[in-house]
Amino acid sequence: MDKMTLNGMRFFGYHGVFPEENRLGQNFHVDLVLKLNLEQAARTDELEHSINYADLHAATKKIVEGPPVKLIEALAGRIATALLETYTGITELTVRVTKPNPPFEIHFDGVVVELVRKRDEHGEIVPA
């Protein structure tokens, strides 16, 4: 299966458990890895046979900059579900959400949640 990867998308959102996070907001980084068949796009050089990554970015932005959730696990889940429901050519999707500046006094590069979802033999979205 072919892959399309979008790395390092950066958005500002209001997600978090603490009220200050919901009020002040913070940066979130999102990476996507899509598994899909890109053979026809590679052969024809036509966008209609692929997925426009600008559209993937816009859909992800709408979710991250939209209504807040408490957990980045829920945020990643919303992104995965929305993209798989919208783009039926995606057979499997990995969503990695990084919260680079969690609001507590420890020093690291952020916390990352990675979810992998795919379509089962009936077309249902399930954990991979």
Rank of each mutant, 00 (worst) to 15 (best):
I79M: 03
T81H: 09
T91S: 14
F108N: 15
K99H: 05
T88R: 12
R96H: 11
T91Y: 10
T94H: 14
L83C: 07
I106G: 12
V97R: 03
T91G: 14
I72T: 08
V69R: 13
P102K: 01
N101Y: 07
E114G: 10
T91E: 15
R117M: 06
T94N: 13
I106D: 14
A74I: 03
R78P: 02
E85A: 10
T86E: 15
G77D: 03
L83I: 05
E73D: 11
H107G: 10
L75E: 02
F104K: 02
A80W: 01
D120R: 00
A80T: 02
P102D: 02
A82R: 13
V116G: 04
G110Y: 14
H122Q: 07
P103I: 01
H122G: 01
A74T: 12
L83G: 06
K99L: 05
L84M: 15
L75S: 04
A76S: 09
L83M: 06
P100A: 08
T88L: 12
L83S: 06
P102V: 03
G89F: 08
L93A: 09
P100I: 05
L115E: 02
A74N: 07
V69E: 13
Y87Q: 11
I90C: 07
E114K: 11
V112E: 15
T94R: 12
P103T: 02
I90P: 01
D109E: 15
V111H: 12
L75V: 03
V112Y: 11
A82Y: 10
I72V: 15
T86G: 13
I106N: 11
V116D: 02
D120Y: 02
A82D: 15
V97T: 04
D120H: 04
D109A: 13
L83A: 07
T94W: 13
T86S: 15
I90E: 06
K70Y: 14
H122I: 02
L115Q: 03
G110Q: 13
G77I: 00
A76G: 14
V113S: 12
I106Q: 12
E73W: 09
T94P: 04
K118I: 00
I90M: 06
R119L: 00
T81C: 06
I90Y: 06
